[in-house]
Amino acid sequence: MPTRSQKPTLDLSISGVLIALSVFVLWGVKEIPPPFFDPIGSAAFPKYTAYIIIALALGIALRASFALRNTVAPSKESFREEPLLAVSVVALSALYTLSMQLELLSFRWATIVFIFLLSTALSKFEKRVMIISAVIGFVFGFGGQYLFTEVFYIDLPQ
């Protein structure tokens, strides 16, 4: 069981975020009225869960800060990571969702554009992938709309 923190900076950041989240939960718990027919009520569970998260986050942060002092060089991956592509996936997925939520595009057209753009970005503008993804986009946009609404009876954003 490896116990030394491999990514102490990330552990510290996550611990900080989780402590902030727990404080936010504790603030929300104050709004819950006291119990009226059972001993603990609805507030107890989230409250104690938040306390446990704070305690565990402090433990993880403490260990990460020890690891920071004698950091081990991270093992090198055999491939190059692409953080920009990971961000593109999240950003384009959010835009895809937003375009339908704001009723700018229907599922059909939003899907065609989304599949084409994301495949293009992931393939780093490889021409062959762009052509094939345009075809996939059309097939999935039109075919998917028909399949899910007419066969599986699932409503899709119009």
């Binding site: 997925s93 895809y96 989304f114 599949i115 994301l118 495949s119 992931l122 999935f140």
Partner: peptide, 10 residues
């Protein structure tokens, strides 16, 4: 995977 990822999110 460039083909798969967008379809999976859809």
């Amino acid at each position: 995977r460039a083909y798969l990822i967008p379809i999976v999110f859809a």
